[in-house]
Every structure is written in structure tokens, then in C-alpha cells.
Design a protein around this nucleic acid. Structure first.
Lengths: 184, 184
DNA sequence: GAAAAAAAGTTTAAGCGTCAACTACTAGTA
DNA sequence: TACTAGTAGTTGACGCTTAAACTTTTTTTC
């Protein structure tokens, strides 16, 4: 026997569907209009900017944003043709490919981040109490854990392809690059 | 000066992004695998099932799910070629087109709804307290209101094309058809 | 009541994501 | 070493969404 949703659950669920869709559309649109980046591209730039040497193996990029490898290939291809990323082969694994954020890519991210954060704030965060934010964080953290096919949400920086050159993931302007979605 | 997100806000936002993406993917996948319907198609079937005569003008469909007209044209085209919807011209407005849910479409929806609701429950609702659900509902209701370009979220059933034939939007099996997203 | 403006839908093409097949390389096993 | 299985990544075709141009009909305005 089907357990239908209660009236209040239905209402909440419908609001959720509509709200999340509109929010995603808005953020993507803002980013596109002002900076010519999609959310998917932006997220990849952020992950790279946070990584040692601003470099990650393709599979790590894929895992960090929970996208398919195929999708990452396509998106990184676009980012590469825009000059924001370059691909190098991995010395320690002949199959590996390392995506590296270029200076142009970093600048692009640094320029886009403040506007993006502002969008996130005005569209969502600023309208929420601290308690609301906490609930959102907990609820979707749980959902992500439950639905994340392979565990390891925070499993990055495990590749053996770093060349020793150090690189901070953006300190203050850099937390800019990361601020809207950076690991805490 | 950019107002970056606090650590807890960042964490919540990142969880939100990941969780909502995974949730949307999961629901769409479940619906596709079990019933060959996309979420977009499912939602349209639901709106039609809830409407008088199981019929809505294209623009009303578009507004009710906050999609572009173009997108609705394409999706309804698919639904029509699947036999779940038919399109008729509107008597009172020569430009108008009315999408009507067929019996096959209704059956399809009635079959898909229980599984969909179950997906929603196991992926999200059942893991939440009543308070959590209330917060989600309020937060995204507000977001939807703020971002909903044109107001009227619930503005439907205003077309002048009803022919007087009555049709309940699914009573109990019907709340089935509607249960996961129906107006309360 | 004719011209201009607006609205309803459709159409076309381009962009992005998914899927399945494919290459190339590594790792495990005998 | 050779054989198999598994992993990394790419490719190309197809499906869905978007954007802009377009047709038709209605509404507005003078």
C-alpha cells in the first residue's frame, strides 16, 4: 500500500521542487551572463583552485563534483579551449590525465567568485536564519551521503602526480575563488 | 567588498549543491528506469491530471511548472507521440492549444505515482523530522516566490476552454496520481 | 476599422549531458 | 612472461533544453 505524502509534506515537496529549480536556473544564468561560465564549469575551476598545484586527475575532478567521467572530459575540453585549463599526461600512471588550472583560469575564477557569492546570498542565504542554514546543511549533507554512489565526498588530493611545487588554494581573494563552495 | 560565506554557510551550501543534484538525478533515474518517464514529463502529467477535464492550455502548463513555452512544446510533443496526451485547438482563442491527458496517460501516471512517491520518501522525506520538512517548505517556498519571474504559482484553471464535462483529479488512486506533488 | 503591438505556439539550430563502445594502460594471476 | 581483468579516459551518437526567429491570431490604439 502506497504511503502518500501528507498535505504539509506535499506542500513542502512542491515548494522544494520549484524553489531548487528556480535557484539553480538563476545561479547558472547569472554566472553565464556576467562571466560566460556555466555552474558546471565554475565548480570545476573551484576544485582545481583548491587543489595542490591547482591540478587534479580527471577522475578526481569527476569524483569531487560527482559527475561522470565522460561529462568531465567534455567540460574540461571546453575549459581547455577557453584557455582556463590545460591537460597534461600523468608521469606515474600512463593512463592518467591531469587537468591544471591556468593563470587565465584562475583570474577568471577570481573575477566570477564575488558575483557568484553575491547571487547565492541574495537568492538564498541572506534570507535564511542561522538555524535554517544549519537545517539545510544537515539535511542535504545526509541526502548526499545516502545517495552518493561511491562514498568519499571529500576524498581528493590523493593523486601521486604532484610535482612538489606548492600553491595555496587562494588565500583571501582565493577564499574568494573558493568561498561559495570551498571545503571548510 | 565581497561578503564571503562563513565556514558553516559554505559547508551548508556545498552540501546543498551536492545533495539536491544527487536527489534530482535519483528521482529522474528511478522514474525513467521503472516507467520510462522523465521528471519533466511526469510533472506535466500530474498538472494535467489535477486540472478540470484533465486539460490545460500550453501556456498554463508552462506557467504551472515554470518552464519555457518552447520546452513545453517539445515535451508535450513527446508525450503526444507516446499517446499520453493529445493536443486540440482552443475554440475561444484561435492561437490557443489545449493539451489533454488521455486515458493511457492517466493510467501511466497512476502506475508511476506510487513508485515515485516511494522514491521521494526513501531519498528524502522519511529521513526528515516534521520540523525539517517545515523548514524546507518555508525556505524554498520563499525562494520560489522571490525568484518566480511571473507571480502566479497556483494560477491555473483560468482558461475559458472547459467544455463542462467534469473530471475529478483522481480521488484516491487519483491522489495517487497527484500525491507526490499535488496541490493540497 | 486599419495599423501597430502583444500574445500563443511552433520551429530550427546549437549547447550540454548521457550512454555505450572504444583505446590504452595497469594490476593480478598462473 | 603471457593472459585476464580492471581502471582511466576519450569518442561519437542521441536526447533534452535553450535561444532566437517566425507564424498566426488577438488586442490595443488612434
Amino acid at each position: 500500500m502506497t504511503r502518500w505524502l501528507s498535505a504539509s509534506q506535499q506542500q513542502a515537496w512542491r515548494s522544494y521542487l520549484l524553489g531548487t529549480t528556480l535557484l539553480a536556473d538563476r545561479l547558472d544564468r547569472d554566472l553565464r551572463d556576467k562571466h560566460g561560465l556555466s555552474m558546471a564549469e565554475y565548480e570545476i575551476l573551484v576544485r582545481l583552485s583548491e587543489s595542490p598545484n591547482r591540478a587534479l586527475r580527471m577522475a578526481e575532478v569527476a569524483d569531487s563534483v560527482k559527475n561522470s567521467r565522460s561529462r568531465i572530459t567534455h567540460t574540461v575540453q571546453r575549459l581547455e579551449s577557453s584557455g582556463f585549463v590545460v591537460r597534461r599526461s600523468c608521469a606515474s600512471d600512463g593512463r592518467g590525465v591531469i587537468a591544471v588550472l591556468t593563470d587565465d583560469g584562475f583570474s577568471k575564477l577570481a573575477a566570477a567568485a564575488p558575483d557568484h557569492v553575491e547571487s547565492v546570498r541574495t537568492s538564498l542565504i541572506d534570507g535564511l536564519s542561522d538555524e535554517d542554514v544549519a537545517v539545510i546543511g544537515r539535511v542535504f549533507g545526509t541526502v548526499a551521503e545516502r545517495l552518493g554512489t561511491d562514498a568519499a565526498v571529500g576524498a581528493m588530493c590523493s593523486n601521486g602526480c604532484h610535482d612538489g611545487t606548492s600553491s595555496r588554494p587562494l588565500s583571501s581573494a582565493g577564499q574568494g575563488g573558493s568561498a561559495s563552495r570551498s571545503a571548510s
